[in-house]
Design a binder for these strands. Structure first.
Lengths: 220, 220
DNA sequence: CGCTTATTCTATTATTCGCTTGAATAATCG
DNA sequence: CGATTATTCAAGCGAATAATAGAATAAGCG
């Protein structure tokens, strides 16, 4: 009655999506793209892939319709095709965290200091932002800040954190955030600030989580 | 500074999860398992895979820790390892629906009658259940009903729908549901009931969606 | 136009994947 | 115990995949 071949074709379509996510390189590319539109070249550099290889991975993502691209002059800018892609990425991360003990071990080694530097939660951060008792800094590269940042955040790219520390407010706590829970920038910024005697904590969330929670994002 | 090899290892862990989802056969197995615990044999039959092949796919899912198993006598029963796995499956479906036009075309061919038989939404169904104006039937195989069904539903497996129709209430509307939006049982049940002059509609959701929404599920 | 830069295409290679087949293991039953 | 049933293991094969290198395309610039 129900055509078994058609049922198979449906699952093949679902598998197109998950196949596109099935390579570490492509997950990393998607993570970067969730911070905003980027050109092949920049993505290749950030992921340490060859340009040709990055381009091929991006085309696989495009074939699964997870990303879209547009040309601007001689560069081609890729972006996530749909908000549902971020939801999907988040679901993969959540399941990996829940199920893979190995991930915890690897993350512990990579995110040095994650355990010492207690993060501040999304709700707590919102409360203190409204009360005006914290300074919020975005320590990602400046162009990612341009593409979208938490409302009220100041752009202080990681490499400028040390010099910024001199002019940082000494009475208020500094909260640093970056791409998300697997990004080391905020951890390094907090370490640098504390070394200079500034009270600093890291935010638990990045822009994706903040946006997913329906909280305000600003651009430019 | 940040060890690139460690970063890669993190993405490899995430990719373990998505790799496990990257085969149509495994997605189908997970869908079946979201209806409840099942033995290899039954899963192989339902998916038209050879037993050995199904067993291998299940072991791949187990290696990614998406499923767990227990022995009961001579059979080994597999189940989803975590609620986050259902969330993940749902995210894959949602993205596929949002992004893949081909899926819509294939689904239209498979789910014959989906367009004519307007579904009833979750909220509407709840309202009418509380008002007592509908009879809710679960048209999945009896053992899936046993593993968990919507509160207030009666088990009427698809093959018994025709005979059940004789004793069906003629004054109240019958609502049929099955595994979810890509399951044909409810559609076929509605068609069979209407042919016999009974007012019948299909529910939009299956047990997974109902449970995900935090609505009551009964077992046994 | 020719030169430079950014990206994609093509071909090649090593590896992994999905499936089949037949044998092995494990529990139950007479 | 031997027979039956359910599942897993092991080997092998063709197809798909990821990465590389080098050529090709396409836009911008002097």
């Amino acid at each position: 009655m129900a055509d078994p071949a058609a049922k198979q074709r449906i699952y093949e379509q679902f598998a197109r999506i998950s196949k596109a996510l099935a390579a570490p390189a492509r997950l990393e590319l998607l993570d970067l793209l969730s911070q905003g539109e980027r050109a092949v070249d920049g993505l290749a550099r950030a992921t340490a892939l060859s340009v040709a290889n990055a381009s091929q991975h991006l085309q696989i993502l495009a074939a699964a319709r997870l990303v879209e691209s547009r040309r601007e002059g001689q560069r081609i800018l890729y972006r996530l095709a749909d908000p549902s892609v971020e939801v999907l990425l988040h679901a993969v991360r959540t399941t990996a965290e829940a199920r893979l003990a190995e991930l915890d071990a690897v993350a512990r080694a990579y995110l040095v200091g994650r355990d010492e530097f207690e993060p501040i939660s999304r709700t707590e951060l919102r409360r203190r932002l409204q009360a005006g008792t914290v300074t919020l800094i975005d320590v990602r590269p400046a162009d990612e800040y341009q593409h979208g940042h938490l409302a009220g955040a100041v752009s202080v790219p990681l490499e400028e954190v040390a010099s910024w520390a001199a002019s940082a407010p000494r009475r208020r706590t500094v909260v640093a955030y970056c791409r998300g829970p697997y990004c080391v920038y905020a951890l390094q910024a907090v370490a640098a600030l504390r070394k200079r005697g500034i009270s600093a904590v890291r935010a638990e969330d990045g822009v994706s989580e903040w946006r997913a929670a329906g909280l305000p994002i600003e651009a430019g």
